[in-house]
Design a binder for these strands. Structure first.
Lengths: 189, 189
DNA sequence: GGAAGCATGTAAAGTGTTACATGATTTT
DNA sequence: AAAATCATGTAACACTTTACATGCTTCC
């Protein structure tokens, strides 16, 4: 019964000192980690309990005034588990669920003008995503780098540059579709 | 009770004349549609039943010898549903679950040499994916285009070019990490 | 005759999301 | 005093995957 990717999300935050479920959730928000591995409260709390039962983390009561709070720290077993996983040779899984590409795949039935409009909407989506990374996520990752963590900046740059590339790809595709629309290149008279 | 993205996958195949559950599954394989919306048998058959109950498709027995088979065709209601969805203004969802980026996010604890090795593995994964699109998926999509379907080629090119871009991005990141490793640039004496 | 492929489906387990429920502390 | 934020958790629902179960047809 080995750990799931979602377990490592939680485990790795505990390792870097993010000790409560609530703080883990906030950190996932802040780092836009949901961009490549979404995780919600209803997963985090059961996962923390599970990781403690299995000895990967240790929790202790840590009330703040009268407010109940549980602070977790990672154990040696937990550290070893992360290290093994990151070093592992097996190919990490990659799943994409893109409703946008799905629509594009169904677009053959539409008139060309509407296909171009759909592609434009996909381009707008990509541009908005790139902008969010640029304005919000990258500055935050730069702060993390100054504190000694390099990975958040790698990830943020990946996010920003991917969406920018994607926007550009849709721009070129739209141009192609519009060019075909204005009339296929007639052979010169 | 509107349709889910998975419903449109099934519905759009029925529209293009892929009439049985088994054939839909094969088409998803062939088009590598699982790359952006994975769908399995255990979803397809209940989905076909559901779509028929709601009047989006119509099924009739179509045995092949003694082998039981149900052939579905799309109804007007079904066609209208796809068209509305593809034309819709709401932003289509995009979800990514990348265990590779998750590992990279957890890599700050590793020595630089191992971070570089991890990035290399991610680059290999991307190169293998690009190669598969190039060698297998794009030729198949070109055949589809000759039959009048333009979307499959758009999607396949997107897949190939994305993975190629991604491989290149990992290559540059690996270079950066290795450069830092060989000693941060000492100030000239 | 055997293997590979065509064809349909169900059951159970696993995974994940949404909504709900509660209450303390800090900020405005 | 109200609003925002901190904090933990559950219940119900939705969705997906894996494994199972069956049997025909075509190709070698």
């Amino acid at each position: 019964v080995s750990l799931k990717p979602s377990s490592y999300v939680v485990l790795s935050f505990v390792r870097t000192g993010v000790s409560t479920g609530y703080a883990i959730r906030s950190a996932i928000e802040d780092m836009r980690m949901k961009e490549f591995w979404a995780t919600t409260f209803a997963q985090i709390y059961p996962e923390l309990a599970h990781l403690e039962r299995e000895g990967y983390i240790a929790g202790r009561d840590d009330p703040h005034g009268d407010r109940h709070r549980i602070a977790y720290t990672i154990t040696e077993k937990g550290e070893a588990a992360i290290d093994d996983w990151v070093r592992s040779d097996d190919v990490p899984s990659l799943e994409v669920r893109d409703e946008g590409l799905l629509r594009l795949a169904c677009s053959d039935v539409l008139p060309g003008e509407e296909v171009a409009a759909l592609i434009r909407r996909l381009r707008n989506r990509a541009e908005a995503a790139a902008r969010e990374f640029r304005d919000y996520n990258i500055p935050m990752a730069q702060a993390a780098r100054d504190a000694g963590f390099r990975a958040p900046l790698m990830i943020s740059r990946m996010g920003e540059e991917f969406h920018a590339w994607s926007a550009d790809w849709y721009r070129r595709l739209e141009d192609e579709v519009r060019a075909e629309l204005d009339g296929p290149p007639a052979p010169p008279a």
